[in-house]
Simulated assay, not measured.
Amino acid sequence: MRASSSTSSFTASQPDEPPHDKTDPLHSEGDAPSHAPSSSNIPPATLVLVATPIGNLGDFSPRGAEALATAELVLCEDTRTTARLLTDRGINARTEALHEHNERQRVPALVARLQAGARIALVSDAGMPLLSDPGYRLVRAAIEAGITVTAVPGPNAALTALVLSGLPPYPFLFVGFPPPRSAARREAFARLHAAERAGLGATLIWHEAPHRLAETLHDMAAVFGPDRPAAVARELTKRFEEIRRGTVSELADFYTQTAPRGEITLLLGPAPEESASADDLDTTLTTLLATHSVKDAAALAAAAAGLPKRVVYARALELASQKKD
């Protein structure tokens, strides 16, 4: 994961590793430890998705390093970022760029290469490939071509932020990056809020660029309400890791006054369980009318509230008329 305007950075410090605990249920006395096949045993004609550190190089797994070292080609979101990781582990691997601007064009040749027997690894700048990063088109094409696709799991910013947030860990919904412009962002938030009114109850997770965080939080407060519990996770696994928790409005005010830096994950707690009221309907309609036609806003609000479309449409017309006056 990385914000569109920033480049991930790594720190080389490694946490102390605790001694082996014989009481560990995964290594009970008398049983041989269970090991997954090593990456060197991954057969040819395989696409391997390899998770990379989200900040701390010490989080890169031995299997991940082995997978990159034994691949004929390592596909990278940014070869310069991956080069630092390879250098740290003494890996001499051929790298090529695969990003949002060239993935569609590169897929056919890469699939042909896999079909010819190549073992190819895919990494993003940080975290698990495909999650807000390139690679989905290649994976789909490889699956459709009957090519083996496997993964070396590891660090993930969304899940790390979730377990540190203090918000309910499940169910959760990872949404990726919000739209960069306020109008489109509010529309996206309104659709999620409508889904909540229709029964969705989950912690919502986004990544966000630091220069947009404050305005995104203000838009979130306008759509979801100012008092929803939320959290902002910043610079996870790095020296200046920070988890700030509070209501949406509290976080919006804080980051309006304090410009954030680094990689950011934004979380919103589940909607409270409460029945919809007339005020709730008006709030939903007012939010939707800012970005939708009266007809579309009424349809979305009716579905969310479980009310007759004609009733909601009539109220939407009233609110639209009042806005014009």
Results as ranks from 00 to 15, higher is better:
residue 10 F to I: 00
residue 12 A to K: 08
residue 13 S to V: 12
residue 16 D to P: 10
residue 18 P to A: 11
residue 24 D to P: 04
residue 25 P to M: 03
residue 26 L to V: 02
residue 28 S to M: 13
residue 28 S to Y: 09
residue 31 D to G: 08
residue 31 D to S: 14
residue 32 A to F: 12
residue 40 S to K: 04
residue 42 I to N: 01
residue 43 P to M: 07
residue 53 P to H: 06
residue 58 G to C: 13
residue 59 D to F: 06
residue 65 A to I: 11
residue 67 A to E: 01
residue 67 A to D: 03
residue 68 L to R: 02
residue 70 T to E: 09
residue 70 T to A: 05
residue 71 A to M: 06
residue 73 L to G: 03
residue 74 V to D: 02
residue 82 T to G: 09
residue 82 T to E: 07
residue 83 A to Y: 08
residue 84 R to C: 00
residue 85 L to G: 01
residue 86 L to P: 11
residue 92 N to K: 12
residue 101 H to C: 01
residue 105 Q to S: 14
residue 109 A to T: 10
residue 109 A to G: 14
residue 110 L to Q: 08
residue 115 Q to T: 14
residue 119 R to A: 04
residue 121 A to K: 03
residue 122 L to G: 02
residue 126 A to K: 04
residue 129 P to E: 07
residue 134 P to S: 06
residue 147 I to F: 06
residue 149 V to Q: 09
residue 156 N to C: 15
residue 159 L to R: 14
residue 166 G to P: 08
residue 169 P to A: 13
residue 173 L to P: 01
residue 173 L to D: 00
residue 173 L to Q: 11
residue 175 V to E: 15
residue 177 F to R: 10
residue 185 R to L: 09
residue 186 R to L: 08
residue 188 A to E: 13
residue 189 F to K: 03
residue 192 L to Q: 08
residue 203 T to S: 12
residue 210 P to M: 14
residue 211 H to Y: 15
residue 217 L to S: 10
residue 219 D to R: 04
residue 224 F to D: 06
residue 232 V to E: 01
residue 234 R to V: 01
residue 236 L to S: 02
residue 238 K to N: 07
residue 246 G to P: 03
residue 248 V to P: 03
residue 251 L to S: 06
residue 257 Q to E: 15
residue 258 T to M: 09
residue 259 A to I: 11
residue 261 R to S: 13
residue 261 R to T: 15
residue 264 I to W: 04
residue 274 E to T: 14
residue 276 A to I: 14
residue 281 L to S: 08
residue 285 L to H: 05
residue 289 L to H: 06
residue 291 T to K: 02
residue 296 D to E: 15
residue 297 A to P: 06
residue 298 A to H: 12
residue 303 A to I: 00
residue 304 A to G: 13
residue 305 A to V: 04
residue 305 A to T: 15
residue 308 P to M: 03
residue 308 P to W: 03
residue 310 R to W: 02
